[in-house]
Design a protein around this nucleic acid. Sequence first.
DNA 1: CTGAAAGCGCTAACAC
DNA 2: GTGTTAGCGCTTTCAG
Lengths: 354, 354
Amino acid sequence: MAARPFATEPREVTMNDIARAAGVARSTVSRILNDVSTNVPVAPETRARVLEAARGLGYRPNPQARALRGAPTMLLGAIVRDITDPFFAGAIEALSTVARARDYNIVLGHAHAQANEALALAAMLEARQCDALVLLGDMRDQPALIEDLRLSRAPAVALWQGTELPGIAAVDVDNRCGIEQALAHLRSLGHHRIAFVGSRLQGDIRERREAFVGALALEGQPIELVGLEVANTPADGVAAVRALMALELPPTAVVASTDVIAAGILHGAAGLGLRVPDDLSVVGFDDIAMAAYFVPALTTIRMPTDVMVAAALDLALGAVGVSPDARSKEHRVFRPDLIVRASTAPPRSFKGPA
Amino acid sequence: MAARPFATEPREVTMNDIARAAGVARSTVSRILNDVSTNVPVAPETRARVLEAARGLGYRPNPQARALRGAPTMLLGAIVRDITDPFFAGAIEALSTVARARDYNIVLGHAHAQANEALALAAMLEARQCDALVLLGDMRDQPALIEDLRLSRAPAVALWQGTELPGIAAVDVDNRCGIEQALAHLRSLGHHRIAFVGSRLQGDIRERREAFVGALALEGQPIELVGLEVANTPADGVAAVRALMALELPPTAVVASTDVIAAGILHGAAGLGLRVPDDLSVVGFDDIAMAAYFVPALTTIRMPTDVMVAAALDLALGAVGVSPDARSKEHRVFRPDLIVRASTAPPRSFKGPA
DNA sequence: CTGAAAGCGCTAACAC
DNA sequence: GTGTTAGCGCTTTCAG
């Protein structure tokens, strides 16, 4: 067989084919298949014939044609910096689940802090294939994206942005509340020298850091901060705990800005011959699926991820009774909870409440 | 302002608008914007005028209209059972990266072994919004999906399917090779009682299990298998190690079918007061990002994920010089490597090579 | 070199 | 009840 320039695709079955097969007009087929019987009556006999033909021919509606007529694409864009981050992986899963319940699919636009970062995102917007967009995590370092977002017709919602993006609806966690719970827990165990590990640069993490500083400053407690430039990786958690433990007066407890960093802290502590929680207490943030199976199981802050994701979707796709205009101004904040596990205990020197 | 039934969308800028602004015909605009200058010459003056108008009006091509004309959607469907699985999260990230290099975006179709499982997938195919599909992980328990896949016009590639799906191209890892490396490593350390943890039900994992059984049977070694029904979760890893250690003659080493299960084994071992690797050696499979930061760092089998994902994309989107027909019959297998870390050591009783 | 016209598959007025 | 018609935004002959 000679190679043809273009493969002759096995032509799609269209409404025309059904119309011909059933001996009716295309519009009739459309009416029946879309079940607009409420408005326009159709003879049951015709209906049966058309449905039969459609099934027999294996008809599948062409979404592009529908979209051209103004139908929604049923695609929801999810822009995330790093799918590999277990917390965001979980969030995407949750988002995908609630989206599916509305017959929406997720288009992934991972930002991946690379050189071409903004481009990937712009491409997605440019393509306008999505009915709405959800941003997961802090994107303020991608000004081009934010700008495009504003110009874009598709509504956008920022999840875990950790800050307000004027004109874009937001769903966030109360980071201060979470950090305060962690600190209250550690203090009740008798800890006085508590360190925080996490960058001051990125949204949520920055908020957590500020909450930490604020809370300790309020009480005149000594503050030990590490990692103005800590990345959200276990490797940087290892480096941080090494730095902390090399201090003249090392902390007895560490609050990590995320569970991923906490994993590194646990690993690094073990490498230094320290036992957690006896020699060092560790508190994480996020409660990723694995946190309960760290060695030891991690005490951490859990957010109502499912609820938050559902709220974001409501905002993005339009909950009943919420005008698009009002939506873009909304900023919903949810309260996290402390989950106490095995990585926290009274410090060694602690002999009971004063 | 009274509420209108439908918000008047800020009308998109179309080619007609440009044509009007530049005083040319729509077809001319199309030619210029698509740069088909090779075929049809266009007056430089006209070209400039049109480009100017397009930029000025902020024109963005409508992908649906293009698709209707037969253009590709530039969307790649990725069907994965569980995005939360760190290994697959990494794979999706890799896939997304190579896809982006070809201007493709990923549409997520997570299968999530629920009641509505097959539906989600069918919906995606039904929608035919994707130019090609990549299946990540074993999907044989979703026969409806597989069937749809065959009917679908979009080419599909199975990644880590762990078995052949007739008519669907596949990219896989040599599981036997990986398991044999793990066993060789453990034997060289002096282990004789080695257990395997992992279900016999699912694709890759089943292959790993069979490789394990085969290799040990060959040498008449005692075989300890756990988990005919082990799920790929840390929780089941914990249960497995408890069961193993309750045996009359517990193993001195465990091979886990995945790093996620290995995490549970490490956690469970610690809970039993066992020290890894002194009391028990543990080998994982996958080398997920966190594996190097487990306590202790996990010895595991690493696959060339990036290369495999790229191969899958080539197959799906059509590498140069490969006919669609030949592609669907391809089955490429890649070799994994053992990464030795801190979770393996000679067994306690071992006093050096015999 | 450029314009006119047809049509991708579908929906929605508007006839009859 | 059902058919006719127009048109969504775009590409692509085919005429000039």
